[in-house]
C-alpha cells in the first residue's frame, strides 16, 4: 500500500502499523501526526492515512513545515491559504499582529506597507522588540515573520500610502486589510479601495482603544465589500489609550475575517 509520509508517497507492506512506518522512515521522530492528529498510540494503517513525522528540537525544512501546516489545518484549509495573497496597509498594533497571525496560518503571499519606524511607545501593543527601536517597522516585522516561516512570499514596502500608490502596490491581492491608526487614513483607503477594486474585500478596524469589554468588539459588514472590526466608537483619547489586549482582539477579528473570506465563508454568519 502507498501512504503519504511527510508529503512523499511511499510504498509499505499491507497492514503496516504507524510505528513500523516511523521506524522505517524516521526512527528518531518523536512526534507523529496522523490525519491531522497527534498520535501517541500505535495503530494499523489501511493506506488512506497522511502521516507527518517530526523530530522535536530540529528545525523543519520547507517540506516538513508545509507538511506540519497541512496536517494541522487539513488540505481543504491549507491549500487556499497557501495560494492566497493578502495586502496589509499599516504595520502598527493591528498590522503587525495581523501579519503574524496570517504568516502562522500559512498565507502564501503577504504584501505589507508602512512608513514608520519602531519607537519605544509602540512596545505596549505592537509586535516589536527593544532591540528593533529605530528600524523601519517593515524591516523589523520582516525579520520576525521570517523567524516564523522563512519560506512564504513576503513583500515589505517602506512607504507612505495614498490613493495613488495603493492600487498598483496591492492590485494582486485577494483580500486587503486596513491597519492604519489615523481615522483620516482609514477613510481614505476605504474610499480608494472600494471604488478601485469593488469586488475585492477590504477588512478594516475602528474602535479598539482602552480596556472596555472584550465582547464589545465585533465584525460587521458595513457597506459594499467593507468589513469593520472593533466596537465602532472607542477612539484614542486621554484616559483611553491603545493597549495590547483590545488592539490584539480587533487585529485577530481582522485576521480571522481574512481567513474566512479566503476560504469562501461568510465572515459574519455562523456556518
Amino acid at each position: 500500500m502507498q501512504i503519504l509520509v511527510n508529503e512523499k508517497l511511499l510504498e509499505f507492506p499491507n497492514h503496516y502499523s504507524l510505528f513500523q512506518v516511523r521506524d522505517t522512515v524516521a526512527p528518531n521522530a518523536d512526534l507523529i501526526i496522523c490525519n491531522g492528529t497527534t498520535c501517541a498510540c500505535n495503530q494499523t494503517l489501511d493506506g488512506t492515512e497522511r502521516i507527518v513525522l517530526i523530530q522535536r528540537g530540529i528545525q523543519p525544512n520547507v517540506d516538513e513545515l508545509e507538511a506540519l501546516l497541512l496536517a494541522r489545518h487539513t488540505p481543504e484549509v491549507h491549500q487556499p491559504l497557501k495560494n492566497a495573497t493578502v495586502g496589509i496597509a499599516g504595520a502598527g498594533g493591528l498590522g503587525s499582529a495581523i501579519a503574524i497571525a496570517l504568516m502562522r496560518c500559512g498565507v502564501g503571499h503577504l504584501i505589507i506597507a508602512d512608513y514608520d519606524v519602531v519607537e519605544p511607545s509602540n512596545l505596549n501593543r505592537q509586535h516589536y522588540f527593544l532591540d528593533q527601536i529605530g528600524q523601519p517597522k517593515v524591516t523589523a516585522l520582516r525579520e520576525t515573520l521570517r523567524r516564523i516561516n522563512p519560506f512564504n512570499s513576503l513583500q515589505c514596502e517602506n512607504v507612505t500610502l495614498d490613493c495613488d500608490n495603493i492600487p498598483p502596490l496591492f492590485s494582486e491581492v485577494d483580500v486587503m486589510v486596513e491597519a492604519f491608526d489615523c481615522p483620516e487614513a482609514k477613510a481614505m483607503i476605504s474610499q480608494c479601495w472600494l471604488r478601485t477594486f469593488p469586488h475585492k474585500p477590504l477588512v478594516a478596524a475602528s474602535g479598539m482603544a482602552g480596556y472596555g469589554s472584550s465582547n464589545s468588539i465585533t465584525t460587521r459588514r458595513a457597506l459594499g465589500n467593507l468589513y469593520i472590526c472593533g466596537d465602532g466608537t472607542t477612539a484614542v483619547q486621554p484616559g483611553s489609550g491603545l493597549m495590547a489586549p483590545r488592539v490584539g482582539i480587533a487585529a485577530h477579528h481582522q485576521a480571522n475575517t481574512v481567513i474566512r473570506l479566503l476560504l469562501g465563508i461568510d465572515p459574519i454568519e455562523e456556518n
Binding site: 502598527g92 491608526d181 489615523c182 478596524a205 475602528s206 474602535g207 484614542v236
Partner: peptide, 8 residues
Amino acid sequence: IVNFVGGG
C-alpha cells in the same frame, strides 16, 4: 455612512 475613529 461609516464613521472611523482613531486607533490601530
